[in-house]
Simulated assay, not measured.
Amino acid sequence: MSARVAVLGLGAMGLPMATTLARTFDVVGFDVAPARVALAVEAGATAAASVADACTGTDVVVVGVRDGAQLDALALGPGGLAESLPAGAVVVVTSTVGEEAVRAVADALAARGIRTVDAPVSGGPVRAGAGDLLVMVGADDDALAAARPVLDALASSLTVVGGIGAGQQLKTVNQLLCGIHTAAAAEALALAHRLGLDLDACVAVLSQGAAASFMLADRGPRIAARLRGEEPPLRSRLDVIGKDMGIVGDLTRRLKVATPVAAAAEQLYRTVSAAGHDADDDSVVATLLTGEQTW
Rank of each mutant, 00 (worst) to 15 (best):
M1H: 13
A3M: 13
L8C: 11
G9P: 08
L10K: 10
L15Y: 09
P16A: 12
T19K: 13
T20Q: 14
L21A: 08
A22Q: 08
T24P: 04
D26Y: 00
G29C: 14
D31L: 01
P34V: 11
A43H: 06
G44Q: 09
A45T: 11
T46I: 11
A52Q: 14
D53L: 03
G57T: 06
T58I: 06
T58V: 15
D59G: 15
V62Q: 02
G64C: 15
R66W: 02
A69F: 02
Q70I: 02
Q70C: 05
L74D: 07
A75L: 06
P78T: 10
G79F: 03
L81Q: 05
E83V: 01
A87N: 04
A87E: 15
V90S: 02
V91C: 08
V91I: 07
S95I: 04
G98W: 00
E99T: 13
E100N: 10
A101H: 04
L109A: 05
R112G: 14
G113C: 08
I114W: 01
R115K: 13
R115N: 03
V117H: 02
D118E: 07
D118C: 07
V121H: 01
V121R: 01
R127D: 10
A130N: 11
M136W: 03
G138R: 01
A139Y: 05
D140P: 09
D141R: 14
L144H: 13
A146H: 11
A147I: 05
A147R: 07
P149D: 07
V150Y: 05
L154F: 04
L154G: 06
A155T: 06
S156D: 14
V161L: 15
G163H: 06
I164V: 15
Q168C: 03
Q168S: 15
Q169M: 12
T172M: 11
Q175Y: 06
C178Q: 07
A186E: 12
A186F: 00
L189F: 06
L191W: 06
L195M: 14
L197D: 01
D200V: 05
A201G: 09
V203T: 07
V203M: 03
Q208D: 14
Q208F: 08
A212L: 10
F214D: 15
M215Q: 15
D218L: 13
D218Q: 14
R219K: 15
G220D: 13
R222F: 14
A225Y: 09
R226T: 10
L227N: 06
R228V: 09
R235N: 08
G242V: 00
K243M: 02
K243H: 15
D244R: 01
M245E: 11
M245P: 02
D250R: 13
T252Q: 05
T252A: 14
R253K: 13
L255A: 14
V257T: 13
Y269G: 00
R270M: 10
V272P: 02
A274T: 11
G276R: 09
H277S: 11
D278L: 12
D278F: 00
S283N: 05
S283M: 01
A286Q: 00
A286I: 04
L288Q: 02
L288W: 00
L289N: 02
G291K: 01
W295S: 10
